[in-house]
Simulated scan of single mutants.
Amino acid sequence: MKAAFVGKGGSGKTTLAGLFCRFLAAQDGRSLLAVDADINQHLAVALGADPDEAVRLPALGDHLETVKDYLRGDNPRIAATSAMLKTTPPGPGSRLLRVAEPNPLYDRLVHRVGGVRLAVTGPFAAGDLGVACYHSKVGAVELMLNHLVDGAGDYVVVDMTAGADSFASGLFTRFDLTFLVCEPTVRGVGVYRQYVGYARDYGVRVAVVGNKVDDADDVAFLREEVGEDLLCWIGRSGFVKAAERGRFLPIEALEPANASALATMRTALDGCTKDWERYAAQAAEFHARNAVAWGNARTGADLAEQIEPGFTLATATAAAP
């Protein structure tokens, strides 16, 4: 299953994404890949990396052409790597990814941090300021998710950019469940309403996880404002406070109520039903949009022809030896 973490800046989105990753990594028989796709690259530190170590991790955004070249494979609909967009969907001959497998991309771009396999998009560089959009960097993430097949016991957890900025690309549709981290405040609820207003138009499943919850009044406020979307909540935590001060305790030391909330999140994610046909249709839709908006002009070709009718990741893996 693929899960995204979104929410207002400062809501604790990255902290909770890191907690959930550590919780999943402690479960036997589960494969996990974490991805930091936030412009503020803090997931590695939330998993226990030293800040100096975190900035040395290889950035997906710096290796977009490498990602394209590998995933292209021998797909006859893609004339050259240079003709691939961040939205290019897979087709016959494309190389598909598994959550846990040996491949050149993982060897180069995925590293273990705090017991979790992690890939990072990379921060804005000085040369990007004023001339680049951060969503050009997360293109590598979108491509990889478009080509990634997750099966039973597989998890992909992506820490997304804050607020509704996630909607600047089709990446927000690439998940089975989106956890929206929401503080019990008017501003937190405002981001929730903005997000679900866009997400529901695309059938995106959203589950609200309350954070920084102090008491029953906070829970009542969230229930009143978000209704049945409230899945669970995380209370104030000495475990989290220790981690934010650089002292990482074993995940088994997390407060029982907060550990129960993480288990509720895992159960909700496990309960989602895969819809590979919708997944493929939305990938094709956003690719066609990008082709018309700028891709065709840049490449001089009709990039909508890269879409293989009827192709889904499910049918591709069923046909594979």
Score class of each variant (00 low, 15 high):
2 K>I: 10
3 A>L: 12
12 G>C: 05
13 K>M: 11
13 K>F: 07
15 T>W: 02
18 G>A: 12
22 R>P: 00
22 R>K: 11
24 L>Y: 02
38 D>I: 11
39 I>V: 13
40 N>M: 12
40 N>I: 12
45 V>E: 15
45 V>W: 03
47 L>P: 12
48 G>H: 05
52 D>E: 15
52 D>W: 10
56 R>Y: 07
59 A>M: 05
68 K>G: 03
69 D>W: 05
72 R>F: 07
72 R>Q: 13
73 G>K: 09
74 D>S: 14
76 P>E: 06
81 T>A: 12
84 M>N: 13
86 K>D: 13
88 T>I: 08
88 T>F: 06
89 P>K: 00
89 P>C: 08
94 S>V: 05
97 L>G: 02
101 E>V: 10
112 R>N: 07
114 G>V: 09
118 L>C: 04
126 A>R: 14
128 D>G: 14
133 C>P: 15
135 H>N: 09
137 K>W: 07
141 V>T: 13
145 L>C: 04
150 D>V: 11
152 A>F: 01
153 G>I: 09
156 V>P: 01
161 T>S: 13
171 L>T: 07
173 T>F: 01
174 R>V: 10
184 P>S: 09
191 V>E: 03
194 Q>C: 09
196 V>G: 08
197 G>V: 10
198 Y>N: 03
208 V>W: 04
215 D>N: 09
216 A>E: 15
220 A>S: 11
223 R>T: 12
223 R>S: 11
225 E>V: 01
226 V>A: 04
232 C>L: 01
233 W>N: 01
234 I>R: 00
234 I>P: 01
235 G>L: 08
243 A>K: 06
249 L>N: 07
251 I>N: 15
252 E>R: 14
256 P>T: 11
257 A>R: 10
258 N>R: 00
264 T>L: 09
266 R>I: 02
271 G>A: 07
272 C>L: 06
272 C>D: 01
275 D>Y: 08
283 A>F: 04
284 A>Q: 03
284 A>K: 02
286 F>D: 06
290 N>R: 08
291 A>M: 04
298 R>E: 15
309 P>M: 00
309 P>A: 01
314 A>V: 00
317 T>N: 05
320 A>L: 14
320 A>P: 02
321 P>W: 05
321 P>Q: 09
